[in-house]
Amino acid sequence: MIWEVFRQEESGEYHTHCGNVHAPDREMAKQFAAIQHGRRKPTNSLWVVPKAEVGEIDADDVAFGGTTDKSYRWATTYRTTGEDAREVVESEDEQATAEQQRGDA
Score class of each variant (00 low, 15 high):
residue 59 A to P: 06
residue 8 Q to P: 06
residue 51 K to S: 10
residue 2 I to A: 05
residue 30 K to C: 05
residue 3 W to V: 01
residue 67 T to E: 12
residue 52 A to Y: 06
residue 43 T to E: 04
residue 69 D to F: 12
residue 35 I to C: 01
residue 87 E to T: 05
residue 32 F to Y: 09
residue 25 D to N: 15
residue 32 F to Q: 08
residue 37 H to L: 05
residue 98 A to L: 14
residue 98 A to H: 11
residue 12 G to H: 06
residue 7 R to G: 04
residue 78 Y to P: 00
residue 5 V to R: 02
residue 34 A to L: 06
residue 38 G to D: 02
residue 1 M to Y: 05
residue 47 W to Q: 03
residue 77 T to P: 00
residue 37 H to G: 01
residue 29 A to W: 00
residue 12 G to A: 06
residue 6 F to P: 01
residue 16 T to S: 15
residue 20 N to M: 12
residue 32 F to E: 09
residue 22 H to I: 15
residue 5 V to C: 07
residue 61 D to T: 08
residue 47 W to I: 03
residue 53 E to V: 04
residue 9 E to I: 13
residue 1 M to N: 09
residue 10 E to V: 13
residue 56 E to N: 12
residue 8 Q to E: 13
residue 19 G to V: 13
residue 92 E to L: 06
residue 102 R to N: 14
residue 103 G to P: 02
residue 66 G to Q: 10
residue 5 V to P: 02
residue 1 M to C: 06
residue 57 I to C: 12
residue 69 D to M: 12
residue 56 E to G: 10
residue 84 D to L: 00
residue 64 F to P: 09
residue 83 E to G: 00
residue 96 A to N: 13
residue 22 H to P: 06
residue 88 V to I: 07
residue 53 E to H: 12
residue 36 Q to L: 08
residue 61 D to K: 09
residue 81 T to I: 11
residue 67 T to S: 11
residue 101 Q to A: 12
residue 11 S to Q: 14
residue 97 T to F: 13
residue 105 A to K: 09
residue 77 T to S: 08
residue 73 R to L: 14
residue 58 D to A: 10
residue 83 E to C: 00
residue 23 A to H: 04
residue 61 D to N: 11
residue 69 D to V: 11
residue 65 G to V: 09
residue 67 T to Y: 08
residue 54 V to R: 07
residue 46 L to M: 03
residue 46 L to G: 00
residue 27 E to M: 03
residue 72 Y to M: 11
residue 49 V to C: 04
residue 18 C to H: 05
residue 59 A to I: 15
residue 33 A to D: 02
residue 17 H to P: 04
residue 89 V to G: 00
residue 5 V to I: 10
residue 63 A to R: 10
residue 6 F to N: 03
residue 31 Q to E: 10
residue 48 V to Y: 00
residue 56 E to C: 12
residue 59 A to K: 14
residue 35 I to Y: 05
residue 70 K to H: 14
residue 75 A to S: 06
residue 13 E to A: 13
residue 14 Y to Q: 15
residue 83 E to W: 01
residue 13 E to C: 12
residue 99 E to N: 13
residue 90 E to S: 04
residue 52 A to W: 08
residue 99 E to C: 09
residue 3 W to N: 01
residue 10 E to F: 14
residue 69 D to W: 10
residue 49 V to I: 13
residue 105 A to W: 07
residue 21 V to M: 07
residue 24 P to E: 12
residue 39 R to L: 12
residue 23 A to Q: 04
residue 58 D to R: 12
residue 17 H to Y: 13
residue 80 T to C: 07
residue 11 S to G: 11
residue 73 R to D: 08
residue 100 Q to F: 12
residue 50 P to I: 02
residue 16 T to E: 15
residue 68 T to M: 13
residue 80 T to R: 03
residue 5 V to W: 01
residue 67 T to K: 10
residue 95 Q to E: 15
residue 89 V to H: 02
